[in-house]
């Protein structure tokens, strides 16, 4: 007879060098009114099994560290409360589509490389000296890219993307949101460089507009918009490059 004051968590465990393949382990935690999945994992680590590995930092959905599959859907563990999940066992797995380092910890190296590849900084039209003052921007110019700057690099969108699941080299939704954050910025002049970086099969053309990336985004960044508007940009660039003056 299950104890109603307790909640069952089924966690996918993997210890490299020891386990041939990941397998589920079951834990019962003391339930509480506002217990998040992250807090449940912390209580397991503190009281039941100190070897459980998972990433976390801020506990308030701004650091993007605690992304994991909860009942099969990519979510931030810190902002997912046990009481909001259907009764019964809660399944916790590392993010889909990424190599598992250990337990709930996945490899992020590929994602970081992708971010580096799209020039993730403002490339100014004309450099200004401090004496010339700041680069000015109107509210409308800010609105053009602001939502894309809300990305916290949690990679939930990659776990939701079946094309990334098929092709790990696909640039993917998160990096494209960051690309659009800079390409949409009125102070930036790096648009062509970035379009050249994503015009290949592993760039924007691996996307088939599935759209689930935007649905799972905890920050409403709408990465599917970033990818697909750049499909349009890349398609026009394909033909207009012949007219372009270098």
């Amino acid at each position: 007879m299950p104890d109603p004051a307790k909640r069952e968590l089924r966690i996918l465990r993997y210890q490299p060098g020891v386990d041939a393949a990941p397998a589920f382990g079951t834990f019962w935690v003391e339930n509480a009114e506002n217990l998040s999945v992250l807090e449940a994992l912390q209580s397991i680590k503190d009281t039941l099994d100190g070897s459980l590995a998972f990433r976390w930092s801020c506990r308030m959905a701004v650091c993007g560290s605690c992304g994991m599959m909860i009942n099969g859907a990519p979510k931030l563990a810190c902002s997912t409360l046990l009481r909001d999940l259907p009764p019964g066992p809660v399944t916790v797995e590392p993010l889909n589509n990424f190599p598992i380092e250990r337990d709930l910890v996945i490899s992020v190296g590929g994602f970081v490389k992708k971010i580096e590849s799209i020039y993730p900084y403002i490339i100014p039209k004309e450099p200004r000296t401090i004496a010339q003052g700041p680069y000015l921007q109107t509210p409308a110019q800010l609105a053009a890219y602001e939502s894309f700057s809300d990305c916290i690099n949690c990679m939930l969108c990659y776990a939701a993307c079946p094309q990334f699941g098929e092709n790990p080299d696909f640039i993917g939704p998160g990096a494209m949101a960051l690309l659009q954050r800079y390409n949409g910025d009125s102070r930036d002049a790096g648009r062509q460089k970035r379009l050249d970086a994503i015009h290949g099969e592993d760039g924007v053309w691996s996307c088939t507009a599935v759209g689930i990336c935007s649905e799972v985004c905890p920050k409403s960044v709408d990465p599917a918009n970033a990818v697909n508007q750049n499909k349009t940009n890349s398609a026009f660039d394909f033909f207009l490059r012949f007219l372009r003056k270098e």
Partner: peptide
């Protein structure tokens, strides 16, 4: 280097059609 390692896809033709 990047242009050689990152050939342009011809998908835009099919995508526009």
């Amino acid at each position: 280097g990047p242009a050689r390692d990152n050939p342009r896809s011809i998908s835009p033709i099919f995508w526009l059609l």
